[in-house]
Each structure stands twice: as structure tokens, then as C-alpha cells.
């Protein structure tokens, strides 16, 4: 039986007078790929920030592997939207992947050979070893997302938060990314995929969390499609 990876109960988040999430409850087992669907402003990014322990919440409970979210740094990794990255910082592919090992290394010390080996292995798993010395900015959107996935692997996180990962990615790269994500799920990692690409979510995610400030629907993707929940939400996506 799979262990519970994420448990959220009655979560409410407010920014001043504006409620971003209201009484949100769901539970996700390890090794699941869960699509997070909702229109702009539905609270997807807020939910990710809460899960990552970055956003305080008014009430409710958020547990990551049975512990409070803020007490679990490093257990989650974040694959960002392109717009969230400062592309003026010229980094090579391998430098970005090595960032996944930074937390464990001390001031004034270089990364240990074991950390470098883990980062290199992660880059190989993402199929980008031959690009290791290239500047990040020179890669295609799909390749960049694979590098961020490699960084998450190097970090050793077993919960991955993917924020609009498929936005601006060509079809072949999408397939290649999905292949990697399925492999990661088979290895027991939990993946939350916030996306506007409903077809991609329907095709690939076991489960779906439909958000519109509150939970509109949560369960097996097929059931939500058959019940028309996703179609109703898609009208607003």
C-alpha cells in the first residue's frame, strides 16, 4: 500500500481581504502524478507555495510525509515557469543541476565528489549529458525544463511541483518530458503538475485536482472527465 505523500485538510489562505484558497482538502499517495487544473487566479500557485512551506496560511493543516510543510525543506523541488527565472544570470546546464546539491554543502567548501556524481547522474537521466557545458539560455524550452527536472532529481526531492512545465514546449519535447515524469513516478516520486494543457493532464495524470479557490473536484482523472467536472472547469481555464 502506497504511503501518504501530501495531506491537506481544510486549508484556507488569504491575502488581506482576498481569499486565495478556502477549505481545501485532499490527500495524495506516493508515486502519483496529479494534474492541478484551474483558471488563472484559482489558487494553483498559492497551493504550491503553501506545500513548499513558503506561504503562511490562516487555518487548516498541511502535512508532507506526515510532517508540517515548513519542517520539510528539501523534500520538495520546484520546476519553475520560464518567467520566474532571471535569464540575465549566465549559467551552464551543469551549474543549474549542481544547484540541487547546494543545501548539503558548507560555506567555502567545494561540492563533494559524491554530490557531483549525483548531479551528473541526474543530468544523464534527463538525457542532457551532452549539453552539460552549454549556457542554459541557449537551450530550447523543453530542454530547459528537463534541466530543471534534473536539478530536482539531484536535490533528492521525492515530491516535484511542476508549474506550467509544458507551456511553450513543442510536441516532441512534451513527449520526452512526460516519459521522464512517468519514470520518476514509477520510482515512487509524487508529481503535481499545474497546467493549462488539459489534454496533457487528461492523458497522463492518474488523478486530478480541480481548483477554483476551493476544490471543485478531486479524484481519478477518468471519473472527473466522465462526470463533466473538467469540461465545466475548462470553460473557465
Amino acid at each position: 500500500m502506497a504511503s501518504v505523500s501530501i495531506a491537506v485538510r481544510d486549508l484556507t489562505v488569504a491575502y488581506g481581504d482576498t481569499t486565495a484558497l478556502e477549505r481545501v482538502s485532499f490527500q495524495i499517495d506516493s508515486g502519483q502524478m496529479v494534474g492541478v487544473l484551474g483558471p488563472n487566479g484559482a489558487g494553483k500557485s498559492t497551493l504550491f507555495e503553501v506545500l513548499a512551506g513558503l506561504q503562511p496560511f490562516a487555518c487548516g493543516e498541511v502535512l508532507i510525509h506526515g510532517q508540517p510543510a515548513s519542517g520539510n525543506p528539501g523534500a520538495l523541488a520546484y520546476v519553475p515557469q520560464k518567467e520566474r527565472i532571471n535569464w540575465r544570470v549566465p549559467l551552464s546546464v551543469i551549474q543549474v543541476v549542481m544547484q540541487g546539491r547546494i543545501r548539503g554543502h558548507r560555506w567555502l567548501r567545494r561540492l563533494r565528489p559524491a554530490d557531483i556524481e549525483i548531479a551528473e547522474q541526474a543530468l544523464r537521466q534527463a538525457g542532457l549529458w551532452s549539453h552539460r557545458g552549454e549556457p542554459m539560455a541557449s537551450l530550447s524550452r523543453g530542454q530547459q525544463q528537463r534541466v530543471f527536472l534534473a536539478r530536482s532529481l539531484a536535490q533528492g526531492a521525492d515530491i516535484l511541483l511542476l508549474d506550467e512545465t509544458f507551456s511553450g514546449v513543442d510536441i516532441r519535447s512534451k513527449e520526452s518530458l512526460m516519459e521522464i515524469l512517468h519514470t520518476l513516478c514509477d520510482q515512487g516520486r509524487t508529481i503535481l503538475l499545474a497546467s493549462h494543457a488539459v489534454d496533457q493532464v487528461e492523458k497522463n495524470c492518474d488523478c486530478c485536482l480541480c481548483l477554483n479557490r476551493g476544490v471543485v473536484g478531486f479524484g481519478r482523472t477518468r471519473d472527473l472527465v466522465e462526470a463533466g467536472v473538467i469540461r465545466n472547469l475548462v470553460g473557465t481555464v
Binding site: L54, L76, I85, Q99, L108
Partner: peptide, 23 residues
């Protein structure tokens, strides 16, 4: 600067990712 270089670089490049990673 030498001691913090890799951390500063992470925060400069991807502030949210760095926070999630525990920095």
C-alpha cells in the same frame, strides 16, 4: 563572496526554486 557564491547564484537565478530547496 567566495564562500556564498553558489548560494547567491542560485538565489539570483531562481529565487523561488532556491527557497523551495531550503535556502
Amino acid at each position: 563572496l567566495y564562500g556564498l557564491h553558489s548560494r547567491l547564484l542560485f538565489v539570483s537565478f531562481d529565487p523561488l526554486g532556491a527557497k523551495v530547496a531550503g535556502l
